[in-house]
Design a protein around this nucleic acid. Structure first.
Length: 472
RNA sequence: GUGGCUAUAGCUCAGUCGGUAGAGCGCCUGGUUGUGGUCCAGGAGGUCGCCGGUUCAAGCCCGGUUAGCCACCCCA
């Protein structure tokens, strides 16, 4: 069979890359749990109409179809049947927020609100892949939803939890992060105050600022959103405002006043933004920065919005985004407003690996490879390995009784730090104690007598570790 | 979905003016007395993405196709 070509957009790491990814996942999970988030997992599929509710019909959703479907449905079955079937068509979820909203509605009676949950799963998007952009990738979400209402302070708390989670990865070489925040109410209040009612459209154009520059955005605003030159100018001036302290709020207020664009909504938003910046400056200085050009494409955000960049890797795009949403989870009678953020784990890990920022000390768990003297005595090696494992030392037995040089090479290729040589029979043919032998640190070459019932490797060699790549 | 670029050994790549393939790394074997890495010697491994066309002759030129990369779009 011909070698399969890799599918771009569906990343697969080698074992040492997986060690890095697993460390990231473990760290995130631990932080989330420290903050009281409960873990859940939702199914991979949702009804298609649910997934497309987000508005954006152009969303590249992977649709699920059975191979035999056509034969089943085609022959008989009325138009109506087929229409109903289409409605029930399943798609792979493209984020974790929409499935979570559905989950909340479905289990509202059994959940305690405000409900804090984390969710770490794969999602799928049928977009064209690029560096850091995948068609299948892992997201790590945290969300808080309330029943009927959700206090504002959660909009402050959530980004700080993420800052802590990502900060906990700093010691393995993950760069510093910057969480950029804005508030939808500010943007909407400002635009409406200016007389621009297509808030979505304006946001979409402003979002391109970093890529195409202010002049091009001004043109688009006039061409696509029908803004007057004066209005476009005001939008750009707003977008230019950023900073880590509350003077940002004063600057926005002054700008709005100069255009006579102050609205109640704007004031509400500014109040929220000020509270967020103040609290963040106190609890995680330097991490959270207000940036009035942060737009977020998703239309369901109603309050704070967040984007996170890796300092020094801004081109990669956001590695953690989210915001406040008021009506995503609603059954018509009850609404469950929420706020959440999502880390793009695959995007983060792919950059950590490709840029050589972090590395695993080895790709296999094995700390000790037990050599086999000859196949007739393999059971002695098995016994040594069993004794080591019984005390929590990951041990493996050499695949064949090759020359010792080869067996050392087997360990070396895998990054296994120690090789165990079972004791040889004495010259007079006496059998040595089964668990006795010599253990060699193949990095230093040092070899010492050892007993498998008591010997253990240094703690730092017991399991693979994730370390800054430069230090290796 | 739109546009640009690319496709040769396991990996990274070279291949002149069209004359049926090369390097480095990796891998395997050996350099006796059971201990790797360095060194030396040898070796295996390629329908040049796929289909068709032009030509005496195609890795190279032309058309198509598939896949990948990059930008747009969108977003983690």
């Amino acid at each position: 069979m011909a070698r399969p070509t890799p599918l771009s957009g569906f990343p697969e790491w080698l074992p040492d890359g997986r060690v890095v990814e697993q460390h990231v996942l473990d760290t995130l999970r631990r932080t989330f749990e420290l903050h009281g988030f409960a873990g859940i997992e939702t199914r991979a599929v949702e009804p298609l109409d649910q997934l497309l509710r987000k508005g954006e019909t152009s969303k590249e959703v992977y649709v699920l179809r059975r191979l035999q479907e056509e034969q089943d449905g085609d022959a008989e079955g009325s138009r109506a049947d087929r229409a109903a079937a289409a409605e029930k068509q399943l798609g792979l979820h493209f984020d974790l927020t929409v499935p979570f909203a559905r989950y909340v509605l479905e289990n509202a009676g059994r959940l305690a609100f405000p409900f804090k949950r984390y969710q770490i799963q794969k999602v799928w998007r049928g977009e064209r892949p690029q560096d850091g952009r995948f068609r299948e990738f892992v997201q790590a979400d945290i969300d808080v939803v309330g029943a009927g209402e959700l206090p504002y302070h959660y909009e402050v708390e959530l980004p700080l939890v993420m800052a802590e989670a990502l900060g906990a990865l700093r010691d393995v070489g993950v760069p510093e992060v910057r969480i950029l925040v804005n508030n939808r109410k500010v943007a909407e209040g400002f635009y409406r105050g200016l007389g621009l009612d297509d808030v979505e459209g304006v946001l979409r154009q402003v979002d391109k600022l970093d890529k195409i520059g202010p002049d091009a955005v001004a043109e688009l605003l006039q061409a696509e959103q029908g803004a007057a030159p004066e209005q476009a100018k005001a939008c750009l001036e707003l977008a230019a405002i950023s900073g880590a302290d509350t003077t940002v709020v004063d600057r926005v207020r002054a700008l709005a006043a100069s255009y006579d664009a102050v609205t109640e909504l704007l004031e509400t938003g500014l109040g929220e933004l000020a509270a967020l910046i103040e609290a963040a400056a106190r609890r995680a200085p330097g991490v959270v920065v207000a940036d009035l050009k942060i737009a977020r494409g998703l239309d369901y955000y109603t309050g704070s919005v967040y984007e996170t960049v890796l300092v020094g890797h801004e081109q990669l795009g956001s590695i953690c985004s989210g915001g406040r949403y008021d009506t995503l989870a609603s059954d018509g009678k009850n609404t469950y407003p929420g706020v959440g953020l999502s880390i793009g784990v695959s995007r983060l890990v792919s950059r950590l690996l490709s840029a050589g920022l972090v590395a695993a000390t080895r790709g296999v768990p094995t700390a000790v490879l037990v050599a086999v003297t000859d196949e007739a005595h393999r059971d002695r090696s098995d016994a040594v390995a069993a004794a080591l494992r019984a005390r929590g030392v990951p041990a493996d037995v050499a695949p064949s009784a090759a020359k010792f040089g080869k067996q050392i090479k087997v360990a070396d290729r895998r990054g296994i730090p120690f090789v165990w040589f079972p004791a040889q029979p004495g010259e007079d043919g006496t059998e040595p104690a089964v668990l006795s032998g010599e253990v060699k640190d193949i990095r230093s070459g040092e070899q010492v007598d050892a007993d498998a019932a008591t010997w253990e490797p240094p703690a730092e060699d017991l399991f693979p570790r994730v370390v800054p790549a430069a230090a290796e």
